[in-house]
Amino acid sequence: MGRVGLNSLLLKPLTAWLGRLEIEADVKMIEGLADKSPEIRGNQLGRFDRGPLASRNRMRRIYRRGVEGLDAAGVELDDSET
């Protein structure tokens, strides 16, 4: 179904506003964390954390080029798990 009338005019400003609103909520939460250390070893993790875990490995290998330092969590994920 095509978009008509007021809806078409509001799509851009309302979606833009909403996008910023959600990002602001994320930023407020992140900046208020009690622990902003990138270290996640020892944290208790759930099923939604599999993506972040797999990303840590790739960030260390591809982006950081294996450099130790900030991303030294050393947490490994079995990538065969999907």
Partner: peptide
């Protein structure tokens, strides 16, 4: 629709973690 920059006072890993899981969207979004 939009493009913008937003600075976050936190390390890259911590920021990325937030944006690649949805468990927080129930409480935060």
């Amino acid at each position: 629709i939009a493009r913008f920059r937003r600075r976050v006072n936190a390390p890259l890993e911590v920021v990325l973690d937030n944006f690649i899981e949805v468990e927080h969207t129930g409480n935060v979004h």
